[in-house]
Design a protein around this nucleic acid. Structure first.
Length: 670
RNA sequence: GCUGCCGUAGCUCAGUGGUAGAGCACUCCCUUGGUAAGGGAGAGGUCGUGAGUUCGAUCCUCACUGGCAGCACCA
């Protein structure tokens, strides 16, 4: 068919200008018509809002946007996806017989999952990278082909790519089966792709190797995943690698050791040994939370650590959660001679994995009236969960932890109000603790669950509605609904914070539960004189002290605000003549409620300043001969070279004010 | 739990088939110095645990255990 036979079409560019061309023209043609610079820079096109290859034939009138490296989001998407393919090509060329599966983009990069008998090791990464650079240099052109479905399946099965064949089978019938070529190598892919391997550039790096289950299901085969990062140019790549390096310095495990906050050891693996410095943070945070909860109408309780299995059977934990519980035989002989450790007819107890059943048992004591509701029952409850060993991570994921837990027993008509109140309380607490940004998710009914579909519909709807009321269900809040991720008794609102290297952690949560009140028979007397079921809102703001403090450490990189700092001030001498003066000052600071250390070591001031700076002490109070004579003190703040000299009383009062927790500071200013 | 890597002094890390080394920290001595490392000396480790190969294992093999990354699971 000659070009002349093609009808004319009108292409509208982003600036509103219209170009007339013949049907069958490509984005590349349009770019070339605009100018040679653009033709060279063009990576792909957006046709009526959909990303397409540069050589995608335009058949009808369309809105067209030419994508170049300047379009950051699109360019990075294209580059990363192409780099993933490039890696797959390199891997298949270097390790024949390796099957490819899927290779999507992720934040800052991409991965590709492979199937190969022999595992990849970190030694393979430089080899693969080198091959990738060669392929970039070869500048292989990209070619898109569309295959009939059955032929594609036969083809991929024929070459041993059974995962690709499976992917094709699962594609909706409306979808084209497109196969992309880079030279002789080809891969099933929806596209679009850059016009050639040369367009990818060399700003990429393979970062790590790991196992990953096919389709994310542990029942399936485990594949080998290779992760990489890719950027528009070397400068961006370098900036990214530096960013990661800096972030790793904030790791709470590293800082925890450096600042002597806590340690972990195998004899108690998954449980934290809090050192004095670390436990100071805990206590300050706990005291703060206790004041906030008191003010918000909560009542604190304490419930048993160990309860009989009968109780866990009734709550449902025995059936749905037992693999995560530490179960204890009721009777254990002292020695082997007296019988086996666990006898066949042993009766069982378990350490609590959650506080909820205990709270219901308190609720059930006595008769509750509708007038008593809502009852907000709080507990800093220490729970144990036997987590999969591979899941443990510093103090962020442990087997013994303390939640800032509470259960709100309320009537149906109080749910929305209580949930929105909770969201507001959580928001102010996060802000006090330095977090203006957090993500909110709604975790929907899981496979393993109690209760009727209607119950779940209602519970999910309530949480959805309450968040909508607070206006925090937008993209800027990372709002999404997660299928199948709720607890066995209730859907969850999840509140997530991000750690130093970008991993997100769930901290806060609120769950709307009708299952446990039913199973454990909680009732109140309504206005009508009949018994009714209360709804139970399980909720936590910090989540657990362990995880939250871990996040705080990373968030502040160990440089805590005064009220949380393990050591708030250190009095340091320049000459030993000032020792007595320094001791007096330390005493006064301590009397004023400040956590003040003293450093009288026979070292130069430079050395001491360096040490306390590295120890991240927010304030150094420096006493030399001059200060001792004048009754003054020189203050040097962490990371600030400029110093300030003032009287002792002024200094103590100033620091006392600075060290107030945020809620008390706010109360004082009113 | 799964895949891969790792486990040497309090910390950070070298190293070797013939029973170990650095820097920092620690102890002592000299130094009293005005804002990110003053000098010297000393002490400190059955090389994660157990078994195997070997004349001989911290090093090689296997198992166990813990750590790291990711997956799966989750606050």
């Amino acid at each position: 068919m000659s070009a002349a036979a093609q009808p004319e079409i009108r292409i509208t560019l982003p600036d509103g200008s219209v170009r007339t061309t013949t049907a069958g023209s490509t984005g590349a043609d349009i770019a070339a018509a605009i100018g040679p610079g653009l033709a060279k820079a063009a990576l792909a096109v957006e046709v009526d809002g959909r990303m397409r290859d540069l050589d995608w034939p335009l058949k009808d009138d369309a809105k067209l946007r030419i994508i170049t490296r300047k379009d950051e989001a699109e360019a990075l998407d294209l580059i990363r996806h192409d780099t993933a393919h490039l890696m797959a090509q390199a891997v298949q060329e270097l390790y024949p017989g390796t099957q490819v599966t899927i290779g999507p983009n992720i934040e800052d990069g991409f991965f590709y999952d492979f199937v190969r008998d022999e595992p990849f090791t970190s030694d393979d990464l430089p080899k693969i990278e080198a091959r990738m650079h060669e392929l970039v240099k070869a500048n292989l052109a990209t070619k898109r082909t569309v295959w009939p479905r059955e032929e594609a399946i036969r083809h991929f099965e024929g070459i041993g790519e059974k995962y690709k064949a499976e992917i094709i089978r699962d594609l909706p019938p409306s979808e084209d089966i497109s196969v992309y070529y880079h030279g002789n190598w080809h891969d099933l892919c929806r596209g679009p792709h850059l016009p050639s391997t040369g367009a990818i550039g060399n700003a990429f790096k393979l970062t790590k190797i790991s196992g990953a289950y096919w389709r994310g299901d542990a029942k399936n085969a485990q594949l080998q995943r290779i992760y990489g990062t890719a950027w528009r140019d070397e400068k961006e790549l370098k900036a990214y690698l530096t960013r990661i390096e800096e972030a790793e310095k904030r790791d709470h495990r590293k800082i925890g050791k450096e600042m002597d906050l806590f340690h972990l050891q195998s004899e108690a693996h998954g449980s934290v040994f809090w050192h004095p410095n670390g436990f100071v943070i805990w206590r300050a945070l706990e005291a703060y939370m206790r004041r906030r909860l008191d003010a918000a109408g909560y009542n604190e309780v304490k419930t048993p650590q160990v309860m009989d299995a009968r109780q866990w059977e009734q709550s449902g934990h025995w059936g749905k959660y037992r693999e995560n519980m530490f179960v204890i035989p009721d009777e254990i002989p002292n020695t082997e001679d007296e019988g086996p450790l666990v006898s066949n007819d042993a009766s069982w107890m378990a350490l609590k994995p959650m506080n909820c059943p205990g709270h219901i048992l308190i609720f059930r004591q006595g008769i509750k009236s509708y007038r008593d509701l809502p009852i907000r029952m709080a507990e800093f409850g220490c729970c144990h969960r036997n987590e999969p060993h591979g899941a443990l991570h510093g103090i962020m994921r442990v087997r013994q932890f303390t939640q800032d837990d509470a259960h709100i027993f309320c009537r149906e008509d109080q749910i929305i109000d209580e949930v929105t109140k909770f969201c507001d309380l959580l928001d102010t607490i996060y802000k006090d603790l330095g977090f203006d940004k957090y993500a909110i998710k709604l975790a929907l009914r899981p496979e393993k669950r109690f209760g009727t579909e209607e119950m779940w519909d209602q519970a999910e709807g309530e949480l959805r509605e309450a968040v909508a009321k607070t206006g925090r269900n937008g993209a800027e809040w990372g709002w999404e609904e997660l299928k199948g991720e709720g607890a066995f008794y209730a859907p969850k609102l999840e509140f997530h914070l991000t750690d130093a290297i970008g991993r997100t952690w769930q901290v806060g949560t609120i769950q709307s539960d009708r299952v446990l009140p039913e199973r454990l028979d909680a009732t109140y007397v309504g206005e009508d004189g009949n018994r009714h079921r209360p709804v139970m809102l399980h909720r936590a703001i910090l989540g657990t002290y362990e995880r939250f403090i871990g996040i705080l450490i990373e968030h502040y990189a160990g440089k805590f605000p005064m009220w949380l700092a393990p050591v708030q001030a250190v009095v340091t001498t320049i000459v030993s003549d000032a020792d007595d003066y320094a001791k007096t000052l330390q005493g006064k600071l301590r009397s004023a409620g400040l956590r003040a250390d003293i450093d009288l070591r026979n070292e130069k001031i430079n050395y001491k300043v360096r040490e306390h700076s590295l120890a991240k002490v927010p304030v150094m109070l420096i006493a030399g001969r001059r200060e001792a004579e004048e009754g003054r003190i020189t203050i040097r703040r962490l990371g600030v070279e400029k110093q300030e000299t003032m009287t002792l009383d002024d200094a103590i009062e100033m620091l006392r004010q600075e060290a107030l927790p945020p809620d008390l500071k706010a109360a004082q200013s009113h």
